[in-house]
Design a binder for these strands. Structure first.
Lengths: 346, 346
DNA sequence: TGACGAAATTGGAACGTTCCAATTATGAAA
DNA sequence: TTTCATAATTGGAACGTTCCAATTTCGTCA
């Protein structure tokens, strides 16, 4: 019932040319005469030919496939990132394998191996917690370009695209200080990650810069999730000397902090200033709209994909470390009525 | 610098056997002697061999690849769906191409064609708006199993996995009626989609069942997004005879409706009952927690993947239409303090 | 008409695997 | 020792493309 696969040979036969000519047409070579090209294309349509990329990949030992592995696709930050990658990858005629590791290092090992077997030309990786440089070594050795996003790995000789967490955190805390806040907390996130480290350092440096004390007690870790935000703010409000504002590890935590505040009959924005990190899509439409450090996940995905494609085209992967610029988007959750208007006009 | 690819022949040579034997080992055949198997495996490790699936696919004319195409990955419903698919697909030793169409039918055509060229064994599709049965015909003709999720397509002879939108909407409206609401609106969604149609019919049927009038004016369409929810509720509140409750097209709309209510100084839950649809991950943690019809996107992705794999294994794709069961999760946004406790205990 | 360079076309050998049919090794029974 | 079934192993032909070197076709000019 299902017809045999039609191959270049079939269409060569139908068009009265050789398979080599058909191959030339397929590749859009300028060597072939217009008339023949038309004949061949007609045959392709008539016979319902579908190109077999496996065969082509085998022969040319290269593919139009890239892989993207993320640690948590349910986090909309990474979903957006994937969308950004997808857009440029598709336009370049590539297609992407996507795998979700759920922070499982074993899963990550498996999917990376599998992608390698499938002959991906490059890989974009947001590594799971605890990934070592040695995990990426086989890739590097075989010359497959890798771009790390979001999280960097010490000692890995691959490109990376990390947002400027330190500068972003500083900007946020400076803003809170300008508004007169004296006790500012840093809430949420796992303390043993590089991202936490960078954001927290930015927080601390801004305090020091302003000659304010950086109290240990005001830094409270938690899971980087909405639920984590709730517990972190609860803990913060138990303190003898309560904070009046907080920079949160990310937007998810910030939303949780808002929930926790409401549970205590405090209105985020009015009674307590909250700033997030990432600028996920919901940040703008939430109530109150979240003041946050914008890292534009989709744009980040695009840049990562562009970098990767560049390296694939170049053949050699010259490691490149890009820190993505970042900007503070002032909305309502830090009490910024004025700034909000300004943003609306922009 | 980069060594030549090592092939079965190299390792056959190193292990002192023939390439056929190596191939047998690779496939875990029981035909090969334990001692030789060990020798071969040692050689594989020593030489750092990596299996070339392109070659295998070519020879066997089948692959361990499936494709998943979704219409909007930025919507966390679909991101969750993808995660569910990913989980079962990975466990089965498959890998997935993922593409985002952004509701662009042209994009969808391209990615489906591309996936076909890459030899996917099956496809899970959440079709873009306006997809026709004929768009899938080439796939069907060539015997590639397709599973439609979320949205069905009339006349397409493929399997589908749709949640029971009608029953879910009825359950939600019945609940509102039991709580004494008399004027219940249906807010949001594009009226020309099958999903809208089904949910709206469920809404209407529940009203009729209770002997209540189903006023046209109370059905207000909009984009199925948070912003759309805001405009829909604004329109609803302009009505002479205002509703006191609403079933929303999906959770995103419901969140928007809550925003719109707050803008009018109405507290969702207390002053106006809101019910969503989908049970996205934020529904539980939002304030107030959203009462919604749970469709468990991740579970749906899993079931879709299982169905697809079953069909791939069977060789023949017997179209199967599954309607996924659905349940009302009562939280706070419809004023259900009591039920909320019950859920917390569960 | 013949010669010649450019344009267009072509056959066959790869790419790395799997599969088939055929061969060889092994061990038990006669 | 021979015989035979069974267990292991093997060479070579595919799979559908691309690439290379070689060939044919063509138009132009002497």
């Amino acid at each position: 019932m299902v017809k045999d696969r039609v191959t270049v040979i079939d269409i060569a036969h139908a068009a009265g040319v050789s398979k080599s000519t058909v191959s030339l047409v397929l590749q859009g070579s300028s060597l072939v005469n217009e008339a023949t090209r038309a004949k061949v294309n007609a045959a392709i349509r008539d016979l319902g030919y579908v190109y077999n990329r496996s065969a082509a990949n085998l022969r040319q030992s290269k593919s139009k496939i890239i892989g993207i592995v993320v640690n948590d696709l349910t986090n909309s930050f990474f979903a957006e990132l994937a969308v950004g990658v997808d857009a440029v990858v598709q336009s370049a005629g590539f297609v992407q394998f996507l795998a979700n590791t759920g922070e499982k290092i074993e899963r990550q090992r498996e999917v990376v191996a599998s992608m390698r077997e499938h002959g991906v030309s490059g890989l974009i990786v947001s590594p799971a917690r605890g990934t070592e440089a040695s995990d990426l070594a086989p890739l590097v050795d075989s010359g497959i370009p890798v771009v790390l996003v979001v999280r960097d790995i010490a000692g890995a000789e691959v490109s990376s695209l990390i947002s400027d967490n330190h500068a972003g955190a500083m900007a946020a805390v400076r803003h809170l200080i300008e508004r007169g806040h004296q006790r500012i907390a840093f809430l949420g996130g796992f303390p043993d990650t590089a991202v936490f480290e960078a954001r927290m350092r930015g927080y601390r440096d801004a305090l020091i810069e302003a000659g304010m004390p950086a109290a240990e007690a005001l830094v409270i870790g938690s899971a980087p999730s909405r639920a984590g935000g709730v517990t972190a703010v609860e803990q913060a409000m138990m303190l003898g000397d309560r904070p009046t504002a907080a920079l949160c590890f990310n937007d998810a935590v910030a939303f949780g902090v808002c929930d926790g505040l409401r549970a205590r009959r405090l209105e985020p924005g009015a009674d307590f200033a909250v700033i997030g990190f990432d600028d996920v899509i919901e940040a703008k439409t939430a109530v109150p709209a979240l003041t946050t450090v914008s890292v534009d996940p989709q744009g980040m995905g695009q840049r990562a994909a562009e970098l990767l494609l560049k390296q694939i085209k170049a053949g050699k992967a010259e490691p490149e470390a890009i820190v993505g610029s970042v900007r503070l988007v002032v909305r309502q959750s830090c009490g910024g009525q004025l700034e909000r208007k300004r943003e609306a006009l922009a």
